[in-house]
Simulated scan of single mutants.
Amino acid sequence: MFKKNPFGHILFIKKWLIRFFGVVSHGRYRRFNKLQIEGSEIIRSLPETNVLFVSNHQTYFADVAAMFHVFNAALNGRDNTIKNIGYIWKPKLNIYFVAAKETMKAGLLPKIFAYAGSVSIDRTWRSKGQDINRQVKMSDISNISKALDDGWVITFPQGTTTPFKPIRRGTAHIIKQYKPIVVPIVIDGFRRSFDKKGLNIKKRDVLQSMVIKKPMEIDYENETLDEIVKRIQIEIEQDPASLKVISPEEYKRLEDELNAKRKFWS
């Protein structure tokens, strides 16, 4: 009952936290909105440890919660669905997510979420709403390594919910140094359905999507950091170059069409 993970968290408590918040949040992806999933079979093919998921980011917490649902549903035999929440009764307890330390300390609820699986780090480029420039803490890198050794890690390499921002090179450093299996994920619809924190439903009847792609084939020894950064940017569909081939007016028109398609009626 009192077995702990490498971060000192009691697994029995962590399991009940995931169960509770899994039940509470399930309707946000099944009832109020609809989560469309692709690639569940890839989740079942992954090893138990040293897997790094890289994804674009749209809210602080709703993105991660959805991934916890999708991963556990897939591991319990669901194919591209989170229908029937029984899968949450036996959750995978070695799933972690990288998050800014100041975010995870901002209130009781984030602190509880942190216990459920956060690897909290100090951002090197922003703090308290201000742009900064500070050195990476080796303890932060060590904690990510510890999480990879124990299981799966979800990271949002842009470090922000703003779309088409640059990929942080720290992610490439981690990939080069620890050689994890890197699985790209592309999400959409979360920004339209939730507030920025991902705690409150902003709009209902939005079609959310999560596409789990095949693991990247990376030459850990010979690919440069910049090459890895560029490939991640393309894989998670956040390459700014893709915006330059159309006019702002055309982009707005396509965005409006996509928003219309993402509405659904029960």
Rank of each mutant, 00 (worst) to 15 (best):
V136E: 10
V136T: 15
K137L: 15
M138S: 06
M138E: 12
M138L: 11
M138D: 10
S139C: 06
S139Y: 04
D140S: 10
S142N: 14
N143H: 13
I144A: 06
S145H: 15
K146Q: 14
A147E: 05
A147P: 00
A147F: 04
L148P: 05
L148Q: 04
L148D: 04
D149N: 11
D150N: 10
D150T: 07
D150F: 05
D150E: 10
G151F: 00
W152M: 03
I154T: 01
I154V: 08
I154R: 01
T155S: 07
F156Y: 12
P157K: 06
G159I: 09
G159L: 03
P163V: 06
P163Q: 01
K165A: 14
P166V: 10
I167D: 03
I167K: 03
I167E: 01
R168C: 08
R168W: 04
R169F: 03
G170C: 08
A172D: 03
A172S: 12
A172T: 12
H173G: 03
H173W: 08
I174W: 06
I174R: 04
I174P: 02
I175H: 00
I175Y: 01
K176R: 09
K176A: 05
Q177K: 14
Q177Y: 03
V182D: 00
V183T: 11
P184S: 09
V186W: 14
I187K: 05
G189A: 05
R191P: 00
R192N: 13
R192L: 12
R192W: 07
S193P: 08
F194I: 07
D195Q: 04
K197Q: 15
K197H: 11
K197F: 10
G198V: 03
L199D: 14
L199R: 12
N200F: 12
K202H: 01
K202M: 01
K202R: 10
D205L: 14
D205P: 00
D205W: 15
L207N: 09
Q208S: 03
S209M: 08
S209P: 07
M210Y: 05
M210E: 10
M210R: 13
V211G: 02
V211Y: 08
I212K: 08
K213Q: 15
K213W: 08
K214D: 13
K214T: 14
K214W: 09
P215V: 11
P215E: 10
P215H: 11
P215Y: 14
P215K: 09
P215T: 12
M216I: 05
E217T: 15
I218N: 04
D219V: 14
D219K: 01
E221M: 00
E221G: 03
E221F: 07
N222S: 07
N222I: 06
N222C: 03
D226T: 13
D226C: 07
E227Y: 12
E227A: 08
V229N: 02
V229L: 03
V229D: 05
R231H: 10
I232D: 03
I232T: 02
I234M: 08
E235I: 01
E237M: 09
E237V: 06
Q238K: 02
Q238E: 12
Q238R: 01
D239W: 02
D239K: 07
S242I: 12
S242P: 02
